[in-house]
Amino acid sequence: MPELGEVDNGVAASSDVTVRLPNMRVSYDGEAFDETSLAPTWTEQLQLWLDQAVAAGLPEPNAMVLATANADGVPSSRTVLCKGLDERGIVFYTNYTSAKSHDLTVTRYASVTFPWYPLHRQVTVRGEVEKVSAAETAAYWATRPRGSQLGAWASPQSRPVADRRALDNALKAIERRFADVEEIPVPPHWGGWRVRPETVEFWQGRQDRLHDRLRYVCTEDGWRVERVAP
C-alpha cells in the first residue's frame, strides 16, 4: 500500500488533498452588479438570470439546494429542481412523506439556493412554505415522463430499504399495477411545496472577494432592495 501522501493509480492520498485545499481558489471577475442593474421585481430578475444560465449551457440550471430543519433544529440540505416560478414563490415537487416534507410540515420555513458556479452567481430565496394546490400538482404531474410517475409510486422516499433489489422489485410491482392504465394518477402522498419569499438575494462574484450582494426584502409596504456586505 502507498504511504500517506503518495499517489496510487493517479489518485492523491488524503494528505495531498489537505495540502492543496487552502490553495484552491478562483478569481471572480464578473461585471459590476448594482441597484441600477436590477429588474423591477425579484421574479423578473430571477427569470433573467435563469434564462442566462440556460443560454450558457449550464447543467440543470433549475437545480437548487433546499435547506430545512427538523423540530429539534437539526439542519438538512439536498438538491431539488425548481418547477415553478411566479410572484407567489418558488415551487418544487416531492414525496409528502419524505424527510424534507416532515421538516417543512413542522417548521413551515425553508431556504433554496441556485448555485450557478460557472457564472459566479447564486440566488438564495428564503421564506415560509405552503403546499401547492391539488390542481397545480396534477397539471405538473401530467408533464412528467411515465417512468418518473411510476418511480414516485414505487419509492418510499427517505425510508431505509434492504437493498437496490427491493427498489427494483417495488418498481416492477407498480409497473404491473398500472400496466393497463394510460394515465397514471397522482399518488396521494406526492405533491408540490411553494417557498413564499421573504428575502431574495442575488450574489455576483467580484474581484478580491468584494462580491455584489443585492437583496429584495418583503415589507409591509412592499418590496425594498438593500445591499449586503460580502
Results as ranks from 00 to 15, higher is better:
3 E>D: 14
3 E>W: 08
4 L>K: 11
4 L>R: 13
15 S>L: 13
16 D>T: 14
19 V>Q: 15
21 L>Q: 12
21 L>A: 13
22 P>E: 06
22 P>W: 06
23 N>Q: 14
26 V>Q: 12
27 S>Q: 12
30 G>Q: 09
31 E>M: 10
35 E>S: 10
36 T>N: 12
39 A>Q: 13
41 T>E: 05
42 W>M: 03
42 W>S: 02
43 T>D: 10
44 E>F: 01
45 Q>F: 04
47 Q>M: 11
53 A>Q: 04
56 A>F: 05
60 E>F: 07
62 N>W: 11
63 A>S: 14
68 T>G: 00
69 A>G: 05
70 N>A: 10
71 A>F: 04
72 D>I: 00
73 G>H: 08
76 S>E: 12
78 R>Y: 08
87 E>W: 04
88 R>P: 03
89 G>M: 09
92 F>W: 08
95 N>D: 15
95 N>F: 08
99 A>N: 09
99 A>P: 00
100 K>H: 08
102 H>G: 02
104 L>W: 07
106 V>F: 02
108 R>H: 14
112 V>W: 02
119 L>W: 07
121 R>D: 10
124 T>D: 05
128 E>S: 13
128 E>Y: 01
129 V>I: 11
131 K>I: 03
131 K>A: 11
134 A>K: 10
135 A>R: 08
136 E>G: 04
139 A>V: 07
141 W>V: 02
143 T>Q: 09
144 R>T: 05
145 P>M: 01
146 R>M: 04
146 R>C: 04
148 S>V: 02
149 Q>G: 02
155 S>H: 11
155 S>K: 09
155 S>A: 13
159 R>P: 00
160 P>Q: 07
162 A>D: 13
164 R>T: 03
165 R>L: 14
168 D>M: 12
169 N>T: 15
169 N>F: 05
170 A>K: 03
173 A>G: 10
175 E>R: 13
175 E>T: 14
176 R>K: 14
177 R>K: 15
181 V>Q: 09
184 I>C: 01
184 I>P: 00
187 P>W: 08
189 H>I: 11
190 W>C: 08
192 G>N: 02
194 R>P: 02
195 V>L: 13
197 P>M: 09
197 P>H: 09
204 Q>K: 12
205 G>H: 07
205 G>S: 04
207 Q>E: 15
210 L>C: 08
212 D>S: 15
214 L>P: 03
214 L>S: 01
218 C>S: 15
219 T>N: 10
221 D>F: 06
223 W>I: 06
223 W>F: 07
227 R>A: 11
230 P>W: 13
